[in-house]
């Protein structure tokens, strides 16, 4: 088990390195000039040259790469061209903001989806609950997530006025860490969080349902029924066994969902990593964009590792070698 985790960690480092390298060169081959974004009219050639030197963009591509990698290993992501601050200082609060909608959103989406999926899978085949459950899940799954976001905004923000439409706090609200524990913040959090839940739930629901439908006719379910335990408990056995394929799907799917959260952040103007990532790419802010992609890669790799380990906990038949 320990050897397995160590080996998987080593593999993960390799994957992250590969992603970092590809990102680095992709940004460098883009035909654009990062200094152009500063729009400082009358920027002299000398001043421009000085900026490029300061940003470490003057040496050969190879030298730049080695310097970047060296810094990265020391935990130094460099400084943002645009904000003229260390990347870490820019990203850190954004990461926290993203996690506020991502983690509860994904957990609740998976849990609610799995719960409803179990109910739909356990319901009478061809009955009302089964048909309406599948129908709704399929429709929601087919809707692009920005449409979900816009629909939520239109209904609950513009029309009903129940929730604020953008950002994560009214002007003049508490700042710093304390802001996360204000009602104002939760009020702003609600709609984007609901959007993430709605976006992530249907696939969980459908997968869980098909798992339960498959498992409910298994011999061991018949024996559990024969034992005279409550029906809830019987359904739980089917659900528990259906979680296995769900978990293998769930963690890699997080990657796709993180991409989806980028869109949701933009729709709700939520100041998160995803929104910043898009801005950084358009601004040619290499260090910031690279760091953001690096973070995404690390999250996805760790999610996959977590999937393998959780799977072993859920299914005693799995052996780590």
């Amino acid at each position: 088990m320990r050897a397995y985790i160590l080996r998987r960690l080593a593999q993960s480092v390799l994957v992250v390195w590969a992603v970092t390298t590809i990102m680095f060169f992709m940004f460098r081959v883009m035909p654009a000039d990062p200094t152009a974004i500063l729009l400082e009219r009358g920027l002299t050639d000398e001043a421009r040259q000085a900026l490029l030197e300061q940003w470490g963009l003057t040496g050969s591509m190879w030298d730049q790469y080695l310097a970047y990698l060296g810094n990265l290993i020391q935990g130094d992501f460099g400084s943002s061209f645009f904000y003229r601050k260390p990347v870490w200082e820019v990203l850190w609060p954004l990461i926290v903001n993203t996690l506020w909608i991502a983690i509860p959103g994904l957990l609740l989406g998976a849990a609610i989806g799995a719960a409803i999926g179990t109910a739909v899978g356990w319901a009478r085949r061809g009955g009302k609950l089964e048909r309406s459950g599948i129908f709704l899940a399929t429709v929601i799954r087919g809707v692009p997530n920005f449409v979900i976001g816009i629909a939520l905004l239109t209904i609950f923000s513009s029309t009903l006025g129940w929730f604020p439409g953008f950002g994560m706090g009214d002007p003049g609200a508490t700042t710093g860490f304390a802001r996360y524990f204000t009602l104002d913040f939760l009020h702003h959090l609600a709609l984007p969080l609901i959007a993430v839940i709605i976006y992530f739930m249907p696939e969980n629901l459908l997968l869980m349902r098909s798992g339960v439908v498959e498992n409910r006719t298994e011999d061991y379910i018949e024996l559990v029924r024969a034992k005279g335990v409550p029906q809830r408990r019987v359904a739980w056995h089917a659900a528990r066994n259906s979680m296995l394929p769900l978990i293998t799907w769930l963690f890699p799917a997080l990657a796709e969902t993180i991409a989806g959260i980028v869109v949701i952040e933009i729709v709700f103007s939520w100041p998160g990593v995803g929104r910043e990532l898009v801005l950084a790419v358009t601004r040619q802010d290499y260090p910031l964009a690279q760091a953001a992609f690096f973070l995404l890669a690390v999250m996805i790799v760790l999610a996959n590792l977590a999937a393998d380990l959780v799977y072993g906990k859920l299914d005693p038949r799995v052996v780590y070698k």
Binding site: E218, D219, Y220, L223, V224, H237, R240, D315
Partner: peptide
């Protein structure tokens, strides 16, 4: 079929 009659995860 006792082979498949037991829940594999308990």
């Amino acid at each position: 079929s006792a082979m498949n009659s037991l829940d594999p995860v308990y």
